[in-house]
Write a protein that binds this DNA or RNA. Structure first.
Lengths: 299, 299
DNA sequence: ATTTTGTATTAATTTTTTTTATGCAATATA
DNA sequence: TATATTGCATAAAAAAAATTAATACAAAAT
């Protein structure tokens, strides 16, 4: 059998007090318990550590002295690890890996991290961006501890907490025939070509919007890039349906687009925090979650 | 309660196999035992380490991953300590602290260390010279592991092993009236002044020699230095009785001395290895002891 | 010689660890 | 859609380990 940390702690105490019984008292255990533990340690190492004197305590053998020095080192190391463990659980500092759905990232993460840094300056966030299914897989695999996602069709093992809802809108070029309308119905676009933001769960959501409105889009282009959707729309390749809306109506390549509300009743999309259902959040993750809630509550 | 090394080892295995049950098999323990150990570790740290998946093993939480990395480090450290412990017991290398009676040292230690180095090149000896009672105290206090001593009146707690015996002789200046005698009786020196090598146990031994011969020395000088005894004798301050005899008859200051056998029946003095009685020798100390025996057996 | 001191030993007890058996929830399979 | 399988958790029982109380023992102090 191998030695235990407890045995080492006992040994250190005995060496410090120069006496088994005094050490036992200070450790709040009985003298025989301590005696036995030391004897066991000596046996497991095959190395005598103490010289027993009668009626005058013990002294440490030369080999024991060398061993003791290193044993103290190990105990120090063990204490550090314990502290780390507690800190990983208790404190709001160190590293937090956050999964984030790639479309959401540029809209919210910059300000979010700013807020987070104000509340918890010692917390370092590392982002893991990806499509919804990637964010989800990372959460389940324990690669990330918490994620910022659209709450569409997520795995049952993930718990979500809604932060806000975003309404879908139609995006057209500023010179589109409907650009000046204050609202459009999806069926009014039935003959126009559509640019689809084609990401795992998103695509199903967009499809469901049309189904609910009794329409069927003609898909001209599919892309996974939000900005490419805007660019294509801006250059008149077709319209699109999106939920988020950048501050500027200019696309990267200078095109102009316009957002138009949808007339049909639509299902809004929930932006949410996701996390493994039955895993207690660390304080770090909880802090992130709180900051997110505050951020969206304040608009 | 604090965590244990065993729990850490278990955790590492589980993380490595990605499964509690597979790890349990590889550790030759039952799955519930492992399950419980991990749960206990998590509780003691207040930190969830694993995400349990149904029917598909476990994964490690992000915090768990950080903890795990350090835990591996600690286990490595613990193994090193175990190795050190075994080596301190088993191997003939590293450091050995040898107590040595100061009078004996210059006569034997240089060659002894040479022999020792030949047999055990990795063994480093550190000498702790002193009077007999100091050597003895160091042994009992565990400061030295083994000692080279005269076997006079040693503590009962020390075990000795005789290496050789040395006969006492009379030392006189080369121009002393008895210098040419082939042997002298101690009573023949009754009127001469004596130079006493005055060291704790030695002094009693010398006195006993005279008592046994029915004589009483007139002590003119006392000193703790062997060479000063010789010097004083060489300059005609008196005679002395000693057991060891350097190769040269010249003293440090150029005086000449002569050794004369003692006619009376004398008690020879035993040179011996001493060690704490009920302390098993380390291999290092045993090696030293063996080399000593061989050295004195070969003359 | 007697008491005191401090460790070792023994047997009994308590605590902890481990096992066997079973439950439960999700996944894989038919 | 039901059924079997997988893999972790839980419960009760058993085994092992740690601890204690009582005592023996040897040396030191008185």
């Amino acid at each position: 059998m191998q030695y235990t940390l407890k045995q080492l702690r006992y040994l250190v105490a005995v060496a410090e007090y120069g006496s088994v019984s005094v050490a036992a008292r200070s450790l709040f255990i009985s003298q025989p318990a301590l005696s036995a533990a030391i004897a066991q340690l000596e046996n497991s190492l095959g190395l005598p550590l103490l010289i027993r004197h009668h009626a005058r305590g013990i002294s440490v053998t030369p080999a024991g002295r060398q061993f003791l020095a290193r044993a103290r080192g190990l105990l120090g190391h063990a204490n550090e690890l314990e502290l780390l463990g507690r800190e990983l659980g208790d404190s709001v500092r160190g590293e937090l890996i956050v999964g984030c759905f790639m479309t959401l990232t540029p809209f919210f993460v910059p300000k979010l991290l700013k807020n987070l840094h104000q509340s918890h300056p010692e917390l370092r966030v590392q982002l893991a961006e990806g499509a919804l299914d990637q964010v989800q897989a990372a959460l389940l695999a324990g690669e990330t501890e918490i994620g910022l996602v659209y709450d569409i069709d997520l795995d049952h093992q993930l718990a979500t907490e809604e932060l806000t809802r975003v309404r879908p809108h139609v995006l057209v070029a500023s010179n589109h025939r409907l650009a000046t309308h204050s609202a459009v119905s999806l069926s009014a676009l039935a003959t126009d070509p559509m640019i689809l933001l084609d990401l795992p769960h998103s695509r199903d959501y967009f499809r469901s919007l049309f189904l609910d409105a009794g329409a069927e889009p003609i898909i001209r282009h599919r892309t996974q890039s939000f900005e490419l959707v805007r660019g294509l729309v801006g250059q008149g390749h077709g319209y699109s349906v999106l939920n988020l809306q950048p501050h500027s109506n200019r696309t990267y390549d200078g095109g102009r687009v316009r957002c138009i509300p949808i007339e049909d009743p639509t299902t809004d999309l929930a932006i949410a925090i996701a996390r493994p259902r039955d895993l207690q959040l660390t304080h770090r993750a909880a802090a992130f979650s709180t900051v997110c809630r505050r951020f969206f509550a304040d608009g």
